[in-house]
């Protein structure tokens, strides 16, 4: 049985200047302190809005361990990423897993954010411009495991009645440890439970 729903909005720098809208639906599960929070989110870059650049996530958050106000939360999301730029267009499927250990009290919380996201496969299509100016033989098709990202940061939140304000901040590196451009992420968010 659902006990709470929430809508959220998040803006900030997360691989691009982006906005993310979300819907969250909490299920209570017998004896499980946090229940299971199902969610669906959609992110788009807002610096230069382009609906060819989107990120959709469907997943869940659950508590693995709780002792008093100390928690270990886990998240798992399926990710659909789309992009189109001067060199190529792509549609990609990925998985994102995160562990969030930290304090989560009645009014506020502070959690570490350790996440790994793997792009499992992407359908890449080099652009006509790229073929004309650079490499005519570039191949369209499905590419296996083209990328991965580690995110290491913190999340902080304050609850004010039905509203929760949250901030995320941290560093990003590629799967093999190279810094991302930019090498950090930072977002501000607001969720309203109803």
């Amino acid at each position: 049985m659902p006990t709470a729903q929430a809508a959220s909005v998040q803006v900030g720098l997360d691989s691009a200047v982006a906005a993310r809208l979300g819907y969250h639906h909490r299920l209570t599960l017998g004896g499980w302190p946090h229940g299971l929070q199902l969610r669906a989110r959609l992110a788009v870059p807002v610096a230069t809005p382009d609906l060819a650049d989107t990120r959709a996530e469907v997943g869940a958050q659950a508590a693995l361990v709780q002792w008093r106000a100390l928690w270990l939360l886990a998240e798992l999301d399926g990710v659909l990423l789309n992009t189109r730029n001067a060199a190529f267009a792509a549609n990609a499927l990925g998985l994102r897993a995160a562990l969030l250990p930290g304090y989560r009290g009645g009014r506020w919380g502070l959690l570490a954010d350790l996440a790994y996201e793997a792009t499992l496969a992407a359908h890449l299509r080099p652009s006509d411009r790229y073929r004309r100016k650079v490499y005519p033989q570039a191949r369209d098709g499905w590419y296996g495991h083209p990328g991965g990202t580690w995110q290491l940061g913190v999340r902080a939140g304050v609850r004010l009645g039905p509203v929760e304000l949250a901030a995320r901040l941290g560093w990003m590196i590629t799967e093999q440890g190279a810094p991302h451009l930019p090498p950090f992420f930072g977002t501000l968010g607001l969720a309203h439970a109803f």
Partner: peptide, 13 residues
């Protein structure tokens, strides 16, 4: 933004 968005799909590794 195009470059950084694309790096979540294709890592420069």
């Amino acid at each position: 933004n195009d470059y950084t968005w694309a790096t979540r799909i294709l890592s420069p590794d």
